[in-house]
Design a binder for these strands. Structure first.
Lengths: 347, 347
DNA sequence: TTGAAAGCGATACCAA
DNA sequence: TTGGTATCGCTTTCAA
């Protein structure tokens, strides 16, 4: 271990080239002979050389830092968020960027704007985007490139990656109708989330409703707080509304626990009597129930990776989104909670 | 909004002082007359001045960045981790530091060492520390100050903040014995976690066992996978082992769902027949059950704040931990799942 | 209490 | 294809 860190000048000296040649060899922004490049690389590894990040930033006017605006609150089985963050950090690192955390909620667009204007980050990843989100305006005013994870109601030409709720709910309904189901209910997130303009709640509701209507089926959706207790109650209400329902799609991880409990307590077997399909879940939740749930997983890792990639693409060209917006479906993971409609209930 | 960012030189000119005086006024590292300071501040706000982070780092040899080594995997109701991360990021920011994410698992000590040696961060926060963790050695070799969240088996003079499992399990047992309970079981994390050297599993087990023995009571602990199904099974086994048990302490959020289900399915009412005390939980989980659980919350936010503060203290003095190690108990949150021993079962 | 100036370690322009 | 060098914006030593 060297007592003091080697500089680019040291490398140049050892490789018998000029400082600038070393710089160009490293950045590959100017042709360098294979031979000299080899000498440089040898010198670098002999000295254990690493580019000084601060000097690079100062000279190049780029921080090589991406900021992730990280929602402070939150409860839930955070599997998806964790996956997302880890994947984003990893992708950034592999691309030569650091991912820093800016812990700001939807109300702190002022702070966001300040930090962004200081040029602390080359680009920003905005999580938990609301349908009408003030932070979007703040970032635009600050003039910092950013990519949304999720999306506002109007996306204009903003860069974003999001779950494709239309496709996911359509796939869910299709999967169940293929099994013969027609009376399919939908258990959504909470009323509160809807009122806050939480995109998934609104988009999944619309997607489910459209998918049902398209097939001439009657949608039956319910909003539900995030607790097993609320899930039990909601399941009761759904059964009260339609005692003959044969399937329920849930998009509420915690409440789903209550759904299965309520069905069991009524001696309705899963999936013999009622099929349960949990959508937009995180890995592992399916295995937490008996029988293991059939699920459609939120692609947390993919969102993280693609979010960073979209943002980096933005930085390259500087202007309008160079990558198309990304919408990912939730892939189906077969489980034991869905099955064909019981013959006696078929009509 | 200024087209180009103001520099310190601009501020100096406008305030009629030298560049260095501005610098000293900002860092408060040399006396500056109130009058001149006022002029400087006026100039700064007029220009909307912000210190350039890269230039500062280059000249001062400090990055003003703290790295958080972030475990890639993980499932669980991540409430505590999320709280921790948000709190750490916030505390860092308020202290003039950025928090960056280094997504490395316990097996990637090599990568950690490389990054650390490049001086990318002034200090490191190490999460999810194992009892015998190779990353600790890597960080020591890299010569970067670091604070552990959790702790190795031997802490020597390392800096750390952790949950006080001894105190928490003691408090849990005391709370239940005060209610008259004597037959108190403990449902722990998984066998796998124990074998991986996961500190909480080991320390809570020991703490519970000691607390029981100290009172002349017989400990009855069981390891349990993280799923409601495993929780049901484990609860069954506990009841098979001691049909007369009147209370169970759980430290396994997901499994606890199964515990309550199993008790209900046996017509054992909570808390009339059996008390359930969930320890080291995250906010919100208590409310997810019926009745709402009595819990002892993991102090996620406090750990984040204190972890950063300990690390910053380390940076100040440079050498051995200047702050004492921090051990935090989990405060009790009263709920509806614990009560006195039923009279007929008292002996 | 204040000022002048020498770095910090890269990038990127201008020449050769 | 390579070299020389001005420059980025700040910290900090040395003088006044």
């Amino acid at each position: 271990m060297e007592a003091v860190m080697a500089t680019m000048q040291d490398v140049a000296r050892l490789a018998n080239v000029s400082l600038s040649t070393v710089s160009y060899a490293l950045s590959e922004t100017r042709p360098v002979t294979a031979a000299t490049k080899a000498r440089i690389e040898a010198a670098m590894s002999e000295l254990g050389y690493h580019r000084n990040a601060a000097a690079r930033s100062l000279a190049s006017h780029r921080s090589h830092v991406l900021a992730l605006i990280f929602p402070a609150m939150q409860q839930g089985l955070g599997g998806t968020v964790t996956e997302f963050v880890a994947s984003a950090a990893d992708t950034a690192r592999q691309s030569g960027y650091q991912l820093v955390l800016w812990p700001f909620g939807a109300t702190q667009s002022r702070e966001i704007r300040d930090l962004a204007q200081q040029g602390q980050a080359d680009g920003v990843l905005l999580m938990e985007v609301r349908l009408d989100d003030p932070r979007v305006e703040a970032l635009r005013k600050a003039g910092v490139p950013f990519t949304m994870i999720g999306r506002t109601a109007r996306v204009d030409d903003l860069s974003y990656v999001d779950i494709d709720f239309t496709r996911t709910t359509e796939d869910a309904v299709a999967y169940l109708t293929d099994l013969g189901h027609e009376r399919i209910a939908f258990l959504n997130h909470s009323q509160a989330s809807r009122e806050e303009g939480y995109g998934p709640t609104v988009r999944a509701h619309d997607g489910y409703t459209a998918a049902m209507r398209r097939r001439g089926l009657v949608p039956h959706a319910i909003l539900c707080d995030e607790s097993p207790g609320a899930g039990r109650t909601a399941m009761s209400e759904l059964l009260a509304g339609d005692p003959d329902l044969t399937a329920v799609i849930t998009m509420n991880e915690i409440a789903t626990f209550g759904v299965t409990v309520e069905l069991q307590s009524r001696d309705l077997q899963i999936p013999r009597d009622v099929s349960v399909l949990a959508i937009v879940t995180s890995p592992g939740v399916g295995a937490m129930s008996h029988p293991p749930l059939t699920t459609m997983h939120a692609p947390g890792a993919a969102l993280g990776r693609l979010g960073v990639q979209s943002l980096l693409a933005l930085l390259q060209v500087g202007e309008t989104p160079s990558t198309d917006p990304v919408l990912l479906p939730c892939p189906l993971e077969p489980g034991g909670s869905t099955g064909p409609v019981p013959p006696e209930r078929r009509r």
